[in-house]
Write a protein that binds this DNA or RNA. Structure first.
Lengths: 235, 235
DNA sequence: TACTTATTGATTGTATACAACAATGCGCAC
DNA sequence: GTGCGCATTGTTGTATACAATCAATAAGTA
């Protein structure tokens, strides 16, 4: 319960508390497995447990928090399987979404994306790795928003939040790939309205992220690909 | 509040009530816009409003129910835009999922799918259109389950529930396309382990469903395709 | 008669009290 | 000394009471 905001100017609605917790988790200020006691939270935010419970249930629905019956709420700890699934789902959604974004982006959208990268850089310069990670997620979210599909944006939003937990658990130090490189390239493709390239870049970016994790099981999609190749044709 | 179960053997947990309501909505026993009063529901299910509220919030998170502050909960009424988005999201997720299912399906899975179709037929024979619609959705869900990706299955589940609302609002009588035809063909492709064909069939099945709706706006994806073709290449 | 406004009724939002359950620590027996 | 069982304590689950808000209706005036 260390790093959350104190009660001073804190939000007092269920949604506000959920957002604050979500962000704290996203920025790795709350580690996976951390207990989120209802009394603690209601003290911190100055509301009753009723409100806190609503916030926790909302987060549980996004699978960012796990509620164990009669045991309480904890920051979720995605399994290896879940980790694979989340990135496989992102690989299914985000590349085509990046294509749409490239085709629909207006100049103002490009500006927003570039502003995101700048913030990301300054966070890294300030050594705030958590904030940089959060901003990196927001970059992906912004692309979905530009694509103009709220439903897909919502799904991506949840997947990004879960990705943050996965990175907290399974990131390996060796792989220090620089995100901003990939993000810069994406912005260029989108600014050029090059849908093909945006889709490709997003796909390979996600594959890079996925493979930068310490996940030793073979993911289901790879099994499918293997079987697909063995049965003798390509999609 | 007409067609829900009476209190006799009703579920008493938040999840149970959410499931019962979800199913009633899915089967068109509760029309879009229907008020879901907390007192009414707590009387019907014999639990306090606390439990009912949790169930309603859960359904609201799936966008099957809309909660208006200080006004109460209503069965959702998806807008035209939402309707398009839901089917576009399904077109993004389900075809590739059907491919995976074809590659991973075991004999027992095929049996389950065929059992689904049989139930669907008997529901239609009994004139229970709502139940047939529900079962049709479950068929799609079962395919996602066979593909073995819980995360994607969850997303598809939500999209199917919302689709049911969209069909209630925007289905046009003229289009009496027979779902079971398409479902039969899908089973065959899956049984043959023909991933390509399963993907194709699912794609065209979803396009058929989408175009059988009374949606006169031009969807975003079509705009993208148009612009993509104009800029001179194919994905 | 039409329009505004105040009162009333009903419904939701929030807090709190109590019940049920799990975890912990102590004591006792082996 | 170790293992088991029980009591205690703390936390969550549920119900209910009260406050706040909104919708509807009725009264009053132009």
């Amino acid at each position: 319960m260390a790093a959350t905001n104190t009660a001073s100017d804190s939000p007092v609605s269920s949604a506000g508390i959920a957002a604050a917790l979500s962000r704290a988790i996203h920025e790795h200020r709350l580690a996976p497995g951390t207990k989120l006691g209802e009394d603690d939270l209601s003290d911190i935010y100055g509301v009753s447990r009723t409100i806190v419970r609503a916030a926790l249930q909302s987060l549980a629905h996004q699978q960012v928090v796990e509620i164990k019956r009669n045991r309480g709420a904890f920051v979720a700890q995605p399994s290896l399987t879940e980790a694979h699934e989340v990135f496989e789902a992102r690989e299914l959604l985000e590349p085509r979404t990046a294509r749409s974004a490239a085709l629909r982006a207006k100049p103002a959208d490009i500006d927003v994306l570039q502003a995101h990268i700048l913030q990301e850089h300054s966070a890294l310069d300030a050594g705030d790795r958590g904030r940089a990670l959060f901003l990196s997620g927001q970059f992906h979210l912004e692309i979905a928003r530009i694509a103009g599909q709220q439903t897909i944006t919502d799904m991506v939003n949840v997947l990004i939040a879960r990705s943050s937990l996965i990175i907290a658990l399974y990131w390996r130090r060796e792989s220090a790939l620089c995100e901003s490189q990939a993000h810069h390239a994406l912005i260029k493709a989108i600014a050029d309205k090059d849908g093909d390239r945006a889709e490709e870049l997003m796909q390979s970016h996600l594959v890079d992220l996925h493979s930068a994790l310490n996940l030793h099981e073979m993911p289901a999609v790879v099994q499918d690909l293997k079987q697909m190749l063995l049965s003798g044709d390509s999609g």
